Amino acid sequence: AQFGNYWDMGWVLTGDDERDLLALTREAFGGGASSWLTVHATQRAWRGDSAGARAAADSAWPLRAAEVAAVPGDAQRQALLGLMLAHAGRSAEAVKAVQAAMTLVNANPQARASLISSYTVYTAARAALAAGDRALAFALLRDARQRHYLANPAWVRLDPSWRSVLQDPGFEQALRGDAGLGTDPTRGGGA
């Protein structure tokens, strides 16, 4: 549960470990259905099970939306909502959630270098990519790297969230933190 839920590390699990993760009940996630479903949706997306990811995300995003409504100033919850909306195939809504998350992150300059802030930006980048907005995803990935998120370039290349763009020059530019990608992370870019 810890590997799947914190820092989104479920992708390192294989075989029996992954089966054990997916067999856990929501009680293993503190009774939180949104976390449990988010882990299921994300794990399935990483493994190429788009139908399973969408089914879990369809159940997760309304729960995430309720959390955002209860705590509207929580950027991390907003980014996770964006990720679930993207996996549910609700791309436009996902991008709006990502933009809202970034507005919240950028409204707090004191938190700019915090681990939670950089994790939120990285999650928003993954959500933007899953929603089909490569330009926004790359801008946010660059931002996460500039905030010194703990995922170094080698980690990011292994993270299956980025599998579809490994050969894209924009991806490599974002990993290096190159400027000039032309997208403001608080506004949507083109896919």
Results as ranks from 00 to 15, higher is better:
73 G>F: 00
191 A>R: 01
161 S>K: 07
51 A>K: 01
47 R>W: 01
173 Q>V: 02
73 G>H: 00
170 G>I: 08
154 A>S: 12
46 W>D: 15
30 G>T: 06
87 H>I: 07
135 A>I: 02
160 P>C: 11
124 A>N: 09
82 G>M: 11
23 A>S: 15
119 Y>W: 14
127 A>K: 12
123 T>S: 05
43 Q>W: 04
150 L>M: 07
187 R>P: 03
49 D>R: 03
146 Q>V: 01
49 D>M: 02
149 Y>F: 10
138 F>I: 05
38 T>E: 12
134 R>Y: 08
17 D>V: 00
115 L>T: 03
29 F>Y: 15
51 A>P: 01
179 A>Y: 14
150 L>G: 04
43 Q>M: 14
95 V>D: 06
148 H>I: 02
72 P>E: 03
111 A>R: 14
127 A>G: 05
168 D>M: 08
175 L>A: 11
129 L>V: 06
74 D>L: 07
51 A>L: 05
94 A>R: 12
34 S>F: 09
159 D>N: 04
41 A>P: 09
173 Q>T: 00
51 A>V: 06
73 G>N: 09
166 L>C: 06
100 A>P: 05
46 W>N: 14
183 T>E: 09
185 P>E: 03
31 G>R: 01
170 G>T: 07
184 D>K: 14
117 S>Y: 01
87 H>P: 11
94 A>Y: 13
51 A>R: 06
84 M>W: 09
79 A>V: 00
64 R>N: 11
66 A>C: 03
172 E>W: 06
66 A>L: 05
2 Q>G: 11
140 L>F: 02
119 Y>L: 08
79 A>G: 05
19 R>F: 06
81 L>K: 00
125 A>E: 06
